[in-house]
């Protein structure tokens, strides 16, 4: 069986697939690739089913060496890709010879690149998923230098493409539609105006759990906390300091701070690819 050796783990590289839906009632986050379209595309490029596990890098890329030759593809955040020291294509299937190092460089835009290997990263699944959930610690540990990762047997032919679109990367500004509710009534009437008024930026405290936001606080109409209630991905939760958090894949399943609105799913990959400091424009939308 083919396997990878981690040569350079990078700042934070995790194994991700489509996550483990259906367990939120047990306190288990869905998890999964933050930029899911990029994850799916990387799998398709190497001929994998979209459920196969890929590597999700964070800003600084990673480097791995495979025991045997393997077809790979890198998508998501664009970056320089090298195989055995030679530049190879980003966003296309590439054959990496046995023993050669695949070097996924630092992101030149966005945050997270996805690296698919024909056959997929075949670590043992936990509750049906190989995703690392950083909130609850389920799934394989984040990559560390020298770690070994098994690869599955390739099942399909790689795709014959010349170029792929860049996907979810925001151009200068991150625009996030927000469908108001379920607890918009916990906020002062002017809160929605403050949200839509601008002055927000992606905080460096953002992670796989949530996109944290620097900017004006959202005024509450009432203090205190709600009894714990279920949370969805994309929920814009407002803790007591008034600074919203947009929940991403590893978000807690329940919480007591009010949710002023929800960012629809198709806009979350862009949120996950936005670097700290990126201006955010929230736009109120009807359900």
């Amino acid at each position: 069986m083919n396997a990878l050796t981690v040569v350079r783990a990078g700042a934070l590289t995790t194994v991700q697939d489509l996550g483990r839906p259906g367990h939120a009632h047990l306190g288990v986050p869905r998890s999964g690739a933050l930029d899911e379209p990029a994850h799916r595309l990387a799998n398709r490029l190497v001929g994998n089913p979209v459920e196969h596990a890929t590597l999700e890098t964070t800003l600084s890329g990673c480097a791995v060496r495979a025991d045997a030759a393997v077809t790979v593809a890198v998508t998501g955040a664009p970056c320089a890709v090298r195989a055995g020291g030679r530049p190879v294509a980003w966003g296309a299937p590439v054959r990496v010879p046995a023993g050669a190092v695949l070097e996924v460089g630092a992101a030149t835009a966005g945050l997270r690149s996805y690296v698919a290997f024909a056959g997929g990263v075949a670590v043992p699944p936990v509750l049906g998923s190989r995703s690392r959930d950083l909130l609850s610690g389920l799934g394989p540990e984040p990559l560390s230098d020298g770690a070994r990762l098994p690869l599955g047997a390739p099942s399909g032919a790689s795709a014959g493409v010349d170029a792929v679109p860049c996907g979810a990367l925001p151009l200068g500004e991150l625009v996030l539609p927000v469908v108001p509710g379920p607890r918009a009534d916990w906020f002062a009437p002017e809160a929605v105006g403050v949200l839509a008024g601008g002055g927000f930026r992606v905080s460096s405290a953002s992670n796989r759990i949530g996109l944290r936001v620097d900017g004006p606080g959202l005024p509450r109409a009432r203090g205190g906390e709600l009894p714990s209630e279920g949370l969805v991905r994309g929920a814009v939760q407002v803790p007591p300091d008034g600074r919203p958090v947009v929940f991403l894949a590893d978000h807690p399943t329940t919480g007591g701070y009010p949710v002023i609105g929800v960012v629809p799913g198709p806009f979350l990959p862009g949120a996950a690819q936005s670097r700290p400091g990126t201006p955010i424009r929230f736009v109120a939308r009807r359900g």
Partner: peptide, 12 residues
């Protein structure tokens, strides 16, 4: 997902 909580049930 069907997520019960203190005084709510979430259907996602």
């Amino acid at each position: 997902e069907i997520v019960p909580a203190a005084r709510t049930v979430l259907l996602d």
